[in-house]
């Protein structure tokens, strides 16, 4: 049976992991390769590096990080953040990334999704959608620039469109739930997952294993992204998977 995936996300700035990971006796908690290796050993199913490097001059540091990681870690690696062109994608894949995650650039230039999926295959094109609830009704709007700007798109319609443009997966973040640790937005995840026939990775709001359980069952997510729940050692990936397995969810132990 196809397993539900647990995907830790690391924020990488200027080639270093930020939001220190303060457990597991790391020699260097800022070294992306070391952190990635440890998560891989813990049975993480994939890894995401979110590049938050601000300065243009340092943009290429991520390529070096990806190269070094791909020499040591043999599970799928997705890189997101600041990807704007086919050339950016080509360089990341060539360095050893398995997938790239497009966000703002995909909205501003829809053709990028189509071109990238035609050239490199849908399987390596993830489109990240940042969603914010409009009202109390079950409607969500797409935001860009890290959730600062509304672009006047309906999340469900945009999800369908990115699938038609050739995206292989959707990384769906609830801006309302993100950072709350109160759980994922179940209604949002379910609405998107029932609309598209590509994988949906739920993101935003994980604070405990039961949150992952709910979004994978009620929310119908195919995978979950989580950051702080794992980074600060509150729960290990192994414990979390054991918890999910005991509740009848197919996971790779």
């Amino acid at each position: 049976m196809l397993a539900k995936r647990i995907i830790p996300c690391l924020d990488v700035k200027d080639g270093r992991v930020v939001k220190g990971i303060n457990f597991l006796n790391l020699v260097d908690a800022g070294d992306p390769v070391e952190v990635a290796s440890i998560y891989s050993r813990e049975n993480a199913d994939e890894l995401v590096f979110l590049d938050i490097t601000a300065s243009v001059e340092k943009r290429s540091t991520i390529l070096d990080v990806v190269k070094k990681t791909a020499e040591q870690v043999f599970i799928p690696l997705t890189v997101g953040g600041g990807i704007r062109s086919i050339e950016d994608i080509r360089l990341l894949l060539k360095s050893g990334a398995d997938k790239v995650s497009l966000n703002t650039a995909a909205i501003e230039n829809k053709n990028l999704i189509r071109k990238a999926s035609e050239q490199f295959g849908s399987q390596c094109i993830v489109v990240a959608i940042d969603a914010k609830r409009k009202t109390q009704n079950l409607e969500w709007e797409v935001y860009t620039y890290g959730g600062r700007k509304s672009v006047g798109l309906d999340v469900i319609e945009w999800a369908e469109e990115v699938m038609e443009l050739g995206a292989g997966e959707i990384l769906l973040t609830s801006m309302d739930a993100d950072g709350t640790k109160d759980g994922y937005d179940i209604a949002l995840t379910r609405a998107v997952s029932e609309t598209v026939n590509i994988s949906v990775i739920a993101s935003g709001g994980a604070g405990a294993p039961e949150h992952l359980c709910r979004v994978l069952t009620d929310g119908k997510a195919d995978a979950v992204l989580a950051a702080s729940i794992f980074h600060y050692g509150e729960y290990s990936i192994k414990e979390t998977k054991k918890y999910l397995k005991e509740r009848g969810i197919a996971v790779r132990i």
């Binding site: 397993a3 399987q123 994988s199």
Partner: peptide
């Protein structure tokens, strides 16, 4: 869902 993607 297509592609069949993930650990099986």
């Amino acid at each position: 869902k297509i592609p069949h993607m993930g650990w099986n």
